[in-house]
Structures are given as structure tokens and as C-alpha cells.
């Protein structure tokens, strides 16, 4: 077990290093002058030269690599070119809003998927099933930005039930602001889980022990919830852990639409401004999170199933 852990850890570190280095290589390859982000369009060539030297942009590839990536290894992520604020601080600030959004989305996904999936499974091939499955099919295929714009316009502006955008202050206000962007992110996942739950439930509901339970005279509701749901939820739970990547991707667009001050929006503006330290910082943190999540899931599997450990 320890051997497996060590191997996976070493591999994880390597992956993160690879991702960061590749990103850095790509950033160096493009023809933009990052120093411009630092001083703006009206600065003179002398200013630019001075800035390039001060910010380690003047040297060859290896030196610049050491400058940016090397110092990250020592724990210093540098300062954003655009704002001068230290990257670690920016990320620390923005990560909590994104986490809140992700948690809200996960919660809403299940809150929508479980009832819908249940209805679809128990009323199979009837109207309720078609409606639920149909809605799920639509939800899975809708672009996030379309759903977001629709929700913002309908529920935010026309009906006025929810704030149009922003972060909110205080517990209840925050929840209020969280609903629309959370829903937007949740739609795709909810659709996916609905269909997953439906197919799992259908399989389970035809197995022997469920038949036995019915024969024993238990009410339909009891059968479904007690026996069926517990088993059917298994695979759904597995996927929650791996959903993080999808949510982070969707968060970029959702955060932009709802002016949610999270990491997704920050990544987008960093990329568009070619803000090298910030891009590297966010890439590192994101891959850390995902690799970490994968590691934890893999370890859980290995612990549960010894065969996995030995073959890895």
C-alpha cells in the first residue's frame, strides 16, 4: 500500500511539473510582448527595456524558465503583470467563490437529478419518463452560456426573483446570489445524472431482491427508496468526485456572465492579457486540485480493491 502511494505521488508531481512546463513553453512561444501588459501602450522603448530586465523577460529560455517556474518551486508565484498584486494572494482570494459555486452546482445537480431520475425510472416509457428524459437530453446538450443568459434574463431580470449578477454579502444574500450561476453550472451535470440514475435504477428494479421485496407486499414507494435508490446511487457518487474538472471548465463562462469573482473568470482574463505569472499560478493550482482529487479517488479504489494496487 505504501509503495503504491509513493508511486502515485511521484507520478502526480511529475504530471503537475509537465503541465506547468508545457504551459510555460507555449507562453514563451507566442509573439506578444508581456512587458506591454506591465506598462501599457504609451510607454517608450526605454521603459520597456528597463521593465523587461527587471521582470526577467530579457533572458534566454532556460534562464526565464528558472526565473518563473524555478521560483514557483520555492513557493514564490510572483506578481501579476496586470495588477502587480502577488499571484498567491489573487488565487487565494478567488478560489473560495469558485469552490462555493462548485459546491452549489453539485448540490443542485443531485437535487434535480434524483427526483427526475426516480420519476423517469419508475414511470418508464410513460409521459413522465419522456418529459424527464427529454428535459435531461436537452439539458445535456445546451451550451452553458445559453442556459446562463436565459436564466439571467428570465429569472433575474423579467421575474426579478434572483439578483442579476454579483457576489452578495452575508450568508442569505450570498445564497441568493448563488442560485442562478449554480443552476447554470448544474444543468449539464443534472441532465447527465438523471439519465445515469434512470438507467441504473431500471436495472436494479428488475433484479431479484427487488422483486422479492415487492412480492413481500411492500409498497412501491418503500421498494423504490429503500432498495432501489441505495444501489442505484452507487455509480452516481463515483462520478461526483471526477466532476471537478467539468465544473471548473464550465465555471469560466458562468462566472463571466454573472460577474462572479472566482478563479474561472480570473483565468480567462489572465489568458487574454498574457499575464504569465498569473496563468502559471492558476494552471499549477488547478492541476494540483485535479491531480489531488484523482489521487484520492485512486487511493480509495486501491484500498477497497487490492487487485488494482498490484497491477498499477
Amino acid at each position: 500500500m505504501i509503495g503504491y502511494l509513493v508511486r502515485r505521488l511521484v507520478w502526480s508531481v511529475f504530471v503537475i511539473w509537465f503541465v506547468v512546463s508545457t504551459t510555460f513553453a507555449m507562453l514563451m512561444w507566442i509573439p506578444a510582448e508581456p512587458a506591454r501588459t506591465l506598462v501599457g501602450p504609451h510607454a517608450t522603448p526605454e521603459t520597456l527595456a528597463r521593465v523587461r530586465q527587471a521582470y526577467c523577460l530579457d533572458a534566454g529560455f532556460v534562464e526565464t524558465y528558472g526565473c518563473f517556474v524555478g521560483r514557483m518551486v520555492r513557493g514564490d508565484m510572483g506578481e501579476s503583470f496586470r495588477t502587480g498584486r502577488d499571484v498567491a494572494g489573487i488565487i487565494a482570494d478567488k478560489i473560495w467563490p469558485t469552490v462555493q459555486l462548485a459546491l452549489a452546482a453539485m448540490f443542485l445537480q443531485l437535487a434535480m437529478a434524483i427526483p427526475l431520475g426516480l420519476i423517469a425510472a419508475t414511470r418508464r416509457n410513460r409521459l413522465a419518463d419522456y418529459l424527464a428524459s427529454g428535459t435531461a437530453a436537452i439539458g445535456q446538450s445546451a451550451p452553458t452560456f445559453f442556459v446562463g443568459l436565459l436564466l439571467m434574463y428570465l429569472c433575474g431580470y423579467r421575474l426579478g426573483w434572483f439578483p442579476i449578477s454579483g457576489y452578495g454579502e452575508g450568508f442569505w444574500d450570498r445564497l441568493h446570489h448563488l442560485i442562478l450561476p449554480g443552476l447554470t453550472l448544474a444543468v449539464v451535470g443534472a441532465a447527465y445524472y438523471t439519465r445515469l440514475l434512470r438507467s441504473e435504477m431500471i436495472e436494479v428494479l428488475t433484479t431479484d431482491y427487488v422483486r422479492t421485496a415487492r412480492a413481500k407486499g411492500l409498497s412501491e414507494r418503500m421498494v423504490v427508496t429503500k432498495h432501489g435508490l441505495r444501489t442505484g446511487l452507487g455509480p452516481v457518487v463515483t462520478f461526483i468526485g471526477l466532476d471537478l474538472g467539468v465544473l471548473m471548465g464550465g465555471a469560466v463562462v458562468t462566472e463571466s456572465i454573472f460577474a462572479w469573482p472566482g478563479l474561472g473568470r480570473e483565468v480567462l482574463s489572465a489568458v487574454l492579457n498574457i499575464d504569465i505569472p498569473l496563468i502559471l499560478g492558476v494552471v499549477t493550482v488547478t492541476s494540483l486540485a485535479i491531480v489531488g482529487a484523482n489521487l484520492v479517488t485512486d487511493l480509495a479504489y486501491a484500498w477497497l480493491d487490492p487487485r488494482v494496487r498490484l497491477s498499477a
Partner: peptide
């Protein structure tokens, strides 16, 4: 269509962009 830093770099070089958007507001 490029990002702002790329645009500024491209227009500052004699062998860069020949034809580009330009705006100037006064300092």
C-alpha cells in the same frame, strides 16, 4: 483577431503589422 499585448507588439515593429486598428486618447 489577437489579444491586446500581441497587437501592441505587432504594431511597434517595422516588420510587424502593416494595417491595424489604432486609437489614441490624450494623456
Amino acid at each position: 483577431l489577437v489579444s491586446f499585448p500581441t497587437l501592441i507588439t505587432a504594431i511597434g515593429k517595422p516588420d510587424g503589422s502593416r494595417f491595424s486598428f489604432m486609437g489614441w486618447s490624450s494623456d
